[in-house]
Amino acid sequence: MPYKILEKKELGKSGVLFEIILSTPLIAKKAHAGNFILLRINETGERFPLTIADYDRDEGTITIVFQVVGKSTKQLSHLNIGDEILDVVGPLGNKIHIQKYEHPVILIGGGVGIAPIYPQAKELKEAGNTVICILGARNTDLLFWREKLRSVSDELIICTDDGTEGIKGVVTEPLKNIIIRRKISIVVAIGPLIMMKYVARTTDGSGDLPKVKTYASLNTIMIDGTGMCGGCRFTTVQGEIYHSCVDGPDVDAHMVDFDNLLNRATRFVDQEKESLEQYEDECRALNKFKNEGC
């Protein structure tokens, strides 16, 4: 069964962020905020997870957003409308729990993590919640979906590390300011592990700040996405073992041992680098070949 790319566009101005709309009728039918898919681009490809950033049941499509970090994402970015992806499986993981909360909810998206907060914001908003979104990125070029998110939020805060857009600083700054001032029911953080770690630290009630129930979405290394390989496992601060694929991906951020996760994320850096370099060499060779007009 082919999984065709129906639309593709670049997001922001960084050149590393892309949005793809895929034809996956079965997955679209079952997709919910919080779910992810696993892709394998071609026969020699690896299986890697991407969160479902949007879905259209009628059209039978899902939207995925990714940032080029390694070979697979680079290769994915080189595919165009009409190309097919060999394997797509899902929807995996647990959908997020949607309800009407007493107080506002805060959704924090960092970098490429901005995309997956969109369906959550949308569903929470539809459930009648007051939704505050905080978007963070290193600079303005890496920001995207501002208007899309504004359409489903009551308040949208943007911050960049270098101050090229919005507040200069990290996402925890506006977060602190809000939870000091008002009661918040839940915080959802999706983005780099280090960001989620600091969000969790901000809301765990350990300092002067009040404790707020916080979810983090763990995008760990995984193969099957069904609990089988155990590669995505993480430990809680109490030492219990969970699997982000079946117990998550959205989990109670306060129980996650982020330092261990940060370390586990580095498991294959050498190989990932080797793979990417080899792919880039191949691309260069291919380009040269094309340019020479053979």
Binding site: T44, G45, E46, R47, K71, S72, I223, R267, F268, Q271, E272, E274, S275, Q278
Partner: peptide, 8 residues
Amino acid sequence: PEYDTPIK
């Protein structure tokens, strides 16, 4: 690296 999945 012929296949992309790494193993350590």
